[in-house]
Design a protein around this nucleic acid. Structure first.
Length: 516
RNA sequence: GGCGGGAUAGCUCAGCUUGGUAGAGCAAACGGCUCAUAAUCGUUGUGUCGCCGGUUCAAAUCCGGCUUCCGCUACCA
């Protein structure tokens, strides 16, 4: 038997020409949180992200900057994209670029296979062409038959292209989505895909001859492969698509494919839910288990965009609130799959209320009391009082939600437990008990229970806020007794009494300082 | 135009399938407490439930019409 099948998650590969903004970060953080959660469930995990580097726009921008397309891409990847993900604490296992040989070679091999299988044929791409723009226009670019930019009538031109028999896969795709609702989520996205498939699908032109920044069609090197056809394949080429089963790449492919989740923004749903699985079907490769389309981040009620000056870079937010608050906020505030409004006011309100006042302050009051009443040492184990069963229920609910990509539900469950622990401390009033020397056992019980609950909270929130929970982990003395926080298992986190007595507590800087 | 989704407290939203005096969190006001990051605990107010009409003893909830916002209606990525 082969090795355990990994939980394989991908983000889209981002168009290298764009500057990373919070929309890109939203998708990637969601993927990071989900894969960290699965790792803590003890699963083998593979998390891929990367960049999409071919196409006319990149070629033109590079030229405008007096660089070759390859040099231009190298620069953007190294100076912009990779540092951006490092800054956000993204723990991807691989980063694929569509200009890498491993990708280009496997794409060409795949193309050849599809042609051999009879799904690629020569045809003519016909469409409205604007001489002024020197490009084919989309229906939305036209105003009564005239180019919106130039106001001139367009001409119908045709170009010899290679076509993919997309239409041949409509019945299979419909059967797939109708029999497997989980293959495309949320339901609204699935309904759109089904409606689209039922409305009639034409074959797809998958090569271009008007520019040359792309992967050459293996048997017709005057043409390059259409960027989307190239880009979608990254999910499979990155893990060894088409390699000999006994080779390293082939083994990797067996371990990872099919992908468990492709995370996408809803604007690129169709490419992932229609074209991509059809390509795989044409090659007799398994289709992904799930395509999940999340919503857009709205600013002032509108989709964020650079042209409207509403594009926000992650650093604008992390400079003020910190990386962990950034990661927490978007997943906590917005149901994954629907659009969500971002505002500085809402982010500030949640930061103060949920992170500083609820979570950070709970840690702060516990540590202060351990130092004051227990000489900085965790007292002997206690049975958890009502907190133990509450924690069990929390972990069950949180795990169920997170695995279903309901980040809001999962985080909410955890934060409700946090409130519950705060309430426990308030009810038991350890500061009052401490005044009576005869009640030391009771005092120790309350403080131990609080400390062990915080131990669980740190583990549960670690996928969402890796840095802050690491700090907390160390400050309750867990690192040196229980080991690394990232290796604590979700399945064991609700066991009670895990934090050993005698742990040395150290007071550090507050986790979430109050902001102006 | 067609199909789909939304319009409910100052803000973000739940409730609508299975009609019965309108809910949560945050924000606001007042009081308590002190272990804590002026933290926290308790109490309190707030709404012609987009508009018009219908069914009903009773409608945010069902039906019809309307206004308005948004998404999809194939090859920019």
């Amino acid at each position: 038997m082969s090795a355990e099948k990994s939980f394989y998650l991908t983000t889209p590969i981002y168009y290298v020409n764009d500057a990373p903004h919070i929309g890109h970060a939203y998708t990637t953080v969601a993927g990071d949180v989900l894969t960290r959660w699965h790792r803590q469930r003890g699963e083998s995990v593979w998390f891929l992200t990367g960049t999409d580097e071919h196409g006319e726009k990149v070629m033109n921008t590079a030229a405008a900057n007096n660089a070759s397309p390859q040099d231009w891409c190298d620069r953007l990847v190294e100076e912009s994209w990779k540092p951006n993900w490092q800054a956000l604490n993204i723990a991807n296992d691989d980063f694929i670029r569509t200009t890498e040989p491993r990708h280009e070679e496997r794409v060409q091999k795949f193309m050849t296979l599809l042609k051999d299988n009879g799904y690629i044929y020569a045809g003519k791409f016909e469409g409205p062409y604007c001489i002024g723009c020197e490009e084919f226009k989309l229906p939305g670019d036209l105003d009564e038959g005239k180019c919106k930019l130039h106001g001139k009538p367009v001409e119908m031109l045709s170009e010899d292209n290679w076509f993919f028999k997309l239409s041949a896969f409509v019945p299979q795709l419909l059967a797939h989505y109708k029999s497997k609702p989980e293959a495309c989520e949320p339901a609204s996205a699935r309904n759109e895909v089904i409606a689209f498939l039922e409305s009639g699908v034409r074959d797809l032109s998958i090569s271009r001859s008007t520019f040359d920044w792309g992967i050459p069609v293996p048997w017709d090197t005057k043409q390059v492969i259409y960027v989307w056809f190239d880009a979608l394949l990254n999910y499979a080429t990155a893990v060894g698509l088409g390699d000999d089963p006994d080779s390293a790449g082939g083994k990797k492919f067996t371990e990872t494919w099919p992908a468990d989740v492709h995370l996408v923004g809803k604007d690129i749903l169709r490419f992932h839910a229609v074209i991509w699985p059809a390509m795989l079907m044409a090659a007799n490769v398994a289709v992904p288990k799930k395509v999940f389309a999340h919503g857009w981040l709205l600013v002032g009620g509108e989709k964020m965009s650079k042209s409207k000056l509403t594009g926000i870079s992650p650093s604008e937010i992390t400079d003020h609130f910190g990386v962990d608050a950034f990661r927490y906020y978007f997943l906590r505030a917005i149901p994954f799959g629907t659009d969500g409004s971002f505002s500085w006011e809402d982010m500030s309100a949640r930061y103060t209320s949920e992170l500083a006042n609820d979570f950070g302050n709970l840690a702060s009051r516990l540590i202060a009391m351990i130092e004051k009443y227990c000489e900085g040492v965790i007292p002997e184990r206690a049975d958890g009082d009502g907190l133990a069963p509450a924690l069990k229920a929390t972990v069950l609910a949180a795990d169920k939600a997170m695995v279903a990509l309901d980040f809001q539900g999962g985080i909410t469950s955890i934060m409700e437990f946090c409130k519950r622990v705060n309430g426990y401390v308030t009810e038991r009033e350890p500061w009052a008990i401490a005044k009576d020397a005869a009640r030391t056992a009771e005092l120790n019980e309350v403080l131990y229970n609080t400390a062990d609950a915080i131990r669980a909270l740190a583990v549960l929130l670690h996928p969402v806020m890796p840095a802050t929970t690491q700090t907390l982990w160390e400050s309750i003395g867990a690192e040196s007794t229980l080991g690394k926080i990232g290796e604590q298992k979700i399945s064991e986190v609700s066991n009670w009494g895990v934090l050993p007595a005698g742990c040395k507590v150290t007071k550090g800087a507050v986790l979430f300082p109050r902001l102006e």
